[in-house]
Nucleic acid binder design. Structure first.
Length: 279
DNA sequence: ATAAACGCCTGACGGC
DNA sequence: TGCCGTCAGGCGTTTA
């Protein structure tokens, strides 16, 4: 489900309590765990997970690429929502209630001393959770954060030139750049007037600068609007109302009026304006 | 080095 | 209504 703006929104709301009726995970002590689907845990057994995480306090929640990063007293808890995941924090009434009233597709639940709980919900079971002493082993392979000012025009252009790959799969490669997914990549390429099959080392310096700018624009607008809500996995954002190409097959291009088409690039449904985005 | 094919899962939607 | 194919905000592994 989520790309960078959606994960960022989740991290912020878990931290601040906004949109969760004031509930925050920061400062909460973990006193219980329910693992409802064992394979949710990517690098540890349910038994080890329980014995290690119970008693730890959530110090902070942040994001790296599409990972949610929970900094705990001793370890780091990582969550990746993949295609259909979501995270809820909710108040519990009593012990009995905490054990019950789970939602369909809840795969992992953390119980806090306060009586509140955090649920990892994941209909398609693609999402994963890690408990790691050293999260760098997982996160360090990721490419740079697109919104990091350390990613300069020069650095980004150099990155494009050092590969000979189609632009869309390259931008979606998390080890190249962290956080871009199918939707925001389509939107950024459209705004930069680049065809998704364009080969990276044929991009000019000017095109590269515009692309980085538009990548940042769509991500920032997505974050401002709390992400995008699509299909049955609704999360409260409204960036879907700003889509220029994604999901707009057969509708007119907002720039030139040509009908948006859907093509396949790197096995992924891809939306372009065939007039504005030439190879 | 690059990219395709496929697997992992459940659910929504459209056509018949 | 039921059945069927297609599609889905992701990513790892295997194969070419």
């Amino acid at each position: 489900m989520p790309e960078l703006p959606e994960v960022e929104t989740i991290a912020r709301t878990l931290r601040s309590g906004e949109r969760h009726r004031g509930l925050t995970v920061v400062g909460q002590k973990i006193t219980g765990v329910k693992v409802l689907w064992d394979r949710t845990l990517a690098n540890i057994s349910p038994e080890q997970f329980k014995s290690r995480i119970i008693g730890q306090v959530v110090e902070n929640v942040s994001r790296r690429g599409k990972f949610l990063v929970f900094t705990l007293s001793a370890d780091t808890l990582l969550m990746h929502l993949r295609m259909s995941g979501d995270v809820r924090i909710e108040a519990g009434v009593d012990k009995k209630e905490l054990e019950l009233a789970l939602q369909p597709h809840d795969r992992l639940v953390l119980l806090f001393e306060s009586g509140q709980r955090l649920a990892f919900n994941n209909p398609r079971k693609f999402g994963r959770v890690w408990l790691a002493e050293n999260p760098g082993q997982i996160l360090d392979a990721l490419g740079p954060e697109p919104l990091d000012i350390g990613l300069t025009d020069e650095v980004f252009y150099g990155m494009l030139l050092s590969h000979r790959r189609m632009m869309k799969p390259l931008l979606m490669d998390q080890n190249f750049l962290a956080g871009m997914g199918n939707i925001y990549t389509d939107e950024a390429l459209f705004r930069a007037r680049l065809h998704p099959r364009r080969v990276s080392n044929t991009v000019s310096e000017k095109e590269s600068e515009l692309l980085l700018q538009e990548i940042r624009n769509v991500l920032k607008e997505g974050i401002q609007r709390n992400g995008a809500s699509i299909d049955w996995v609704y999360r409260g954002g409204d960036f879907q109302n700003e889509f220029k190409v994604y999901g707009r097959k057969d509708e007119p291009c907002t720039v030139c009026g040509t009908e948006i088409i859907r093509i396949l690039v790197g096995q992924r449904g891809t939306h372009i304006c065939p007039t504005c985005q030439k190879t």
